[in-house]
Design a protein around this nucleic acid. Structure first.
Lengths: 213, 213, 213, 213
DNA sequence: GATGAATGAGCGTTCATTCAT
DNA sequence: GATGAATGAACGCTCATTCAT
């Protein structure tokens, strides 16, 4: 807010940090290297961030704040849990799929320790899960989603599936379009991996046994 | 290589390492602390492990080797992808749900850096995915699973969902029974989160348009 | 390369290093002890030197660079190999005779290992020998030195004799004036230890046998 | 004395030590490496030697004891300081010139620290210098050597010259015959590097001034 | 005597952070 | 605000030595 010209420096530091963290890992990253890449003095970093960890946390905060805000706005214009989940998945995979360094930081470096993980979860991830939860609740209420599955379980599975897509993408050397996986993942999560005729068969079986009984 | 007389010591070091890594994180863990907890001298560690990293890697290798072996054996006695996926999920959640420290190490510490992740993936996780892939392929061939979804995508989603169950469980303070989530997760992944009538409706629609075509 | 503001610190470290190396030996010397004696923090050492070995090498370089330069200048004003050798010997013994710690480092610590020795020889000692060689060559050409002795052999014997004077002086507890040995050593090397009449006798003998033949 | 069969082990350890010390230097040498090369267990070393340093010292003692004893015996059959110095020089250069590893240990490793040097000097080197001193004294008494030069100075110069021949030979990669340098070195030390006519001239001058006086 | 597994003291070096300028 | 020289705590690992077998 009240950080006019110099906000440029803060931003430069954050951008440099993404690159360095992605390349070296959080513990492997040197504050002096971030400073160098940001073209500021080592000491300057400490005018904008409390310490090394604060750089990582701030990075995460900045990205999540924007991502969540934009995500919520996009959801307002959509109807139906199906559409909304598709939107969330697409945005999730797009955000990270468009910036591999950022993805590395989010998938790997932020999970350095339970300490990080907890703060990470406590702040923004919690909001992200709340958003998912809300959409799922809506779906269960409007009859588009099964009400027999616990909402949080569905949310976790949804997040976990997306998360693994990103992780796999990072570790794979291939540079395929991550966002394209959004639709099939949502399809899988909504319709299931089982063949429909499984159900028909089961129903048929049930009918048969029912008629037989 | 260096496997001195007492395998007991090696084992004690590994058990101590799980605890220390879980509590302090890999980078925060001190080799001397592991030694102390294992009741051996600092130097003794290096009779059994090349270095600190080797402790972590060996830990992972040992657990995965046994887990995968037992998993494969159990699968041999089962029929149908549904049963097999249920077995895999249950074993996965049981393994980690029964040892929180081990779970922390697997969920958090092993993901310290892309370097770790890659080795991790390259060795055992690769095998784990291959196992999943195989079961899914079987299902697609015997007609129990949808053939239109890419196998790897299903495998990733399956793994990602389970993985997130574990991570959530670790970060949550509540000590619920993790393994109990196996069935609902498999159910979700197989049948989907959408209400069956969605399909009926679609089928009806398809039938209608089919009859009309 | 890294030459921060105060050359004073670098110099303080080098002076402290001479004392500590002389007292404890290179391997016995602790970097932290050098830092303490130089009144700088341990880490500061590494702003001025790459590592512990670099301190020793830099020390040697600094001393030799100055010593050789001054030596060459002094030689320019002198005439005759006899005078020049006397100058070299005097300066050699003076340099080390005036600073016992430095002498210890040069006589003992720099010879820690063939590795050190080779670097030592390759750089400055090579120049020193070249200087000696040059003076000896001059003497052989102007007829003041025997041409039948290989120059390098004379140079080595000259250096070796001086070197042993220093080593003996260090190991002896007596604090005699080392530089005073310069003249007798040069005298010995130039005139030989044998009594002149040895030659006369030999000449006589040769004459006798010659006349007899 | 009373170390029958096992003296073989002690000897094997010493031979292994020469090689390892020569290759790695005293501080770089690992006791376990010496043990391995000697084909004994690490602990066995400590049945024959007090500690690592004792191996080096014992090595030196053994070599020097034999060398000095044989040297003294050879001198008994010779007459004249010239012949005796030639014998000493030849034996000195032969001993080390025939075993480069041993030479490295004697020239470099034994000079690790003033502590070593002092012990080294105090024990055998002292005897070696006494031997030299004795031969030089004889020469001065029988009129073959100049009486105006301090005996110790001549002894040091003699030793220093030989010592430098060995050191140069070690550091040079060329494998010339070291012992062949004995004669020219003795010649240089006895007759001097200056041209004889220098003396003739001086004698002439002295004669002239003498006749004039 | 011989072994070699076990010990644990010891240290060079790094790097996040500070603060005088 | 900005700098970057200076700080000093912190730690993985080695290896000479011991001692139970």
């Amino acid at each position: 807010m009240a950080r006019p010209r110099t906000d440029d420096k803060r931003s430069r530091i954050l951008h440099a940090a993404v690159k360095v963290f992605a390349k070296k890992g959080y513990f492997g990253a040197r504050v002096s290297e971030i400073a160098k890449k940001a073209a500021v003095a080592d000491g300057t970093i400490y005018l904008y961030f409390r310490n090394k960890e604060d750089i990582l946390v701030s990075l995460f905060d900045a990205v999540m704040a924007e991502h969540l805000e934009q995500g919520r706005q996009e959801l307002e214009g959509l109807h139906g849990s199906r559409e909304k989940l598709r939107s969330i998945a697409t945005r999730h995979l797009k955000l990270l799929g468009e910036n591999r360094d950022l993805a590395v930081v989010f998938q790997v470096e932020l999970r350095q320790s339970t300490q990080f993980m907890e703060r990470f979860t406590a702040s923004w991830l919690h909001d992200y899960f709340a958003l998912l939860d809300h959409v799922i609740a809506e779906g269960q209420e409007d009859g588009s989603l099964r009400p027999d599955l616990p909402r949080t379980l569905v949310a976790k599975a949804f997040f976990g599936a997306l998360d693994e897509m990103v992780t796999s993408w990072i570790l794979s050397r291939k540079d395929y379009d991550l966002a394209r996986l959004a639709d099939p993942v949502v399809d899988l999560l909504l319709e299931g991996a089982a063949l429909p005729r499984t159900r028909s068969a089961r129903l048929a079986l049930a009918a048969a046994s029912g008629s037989g009984g």
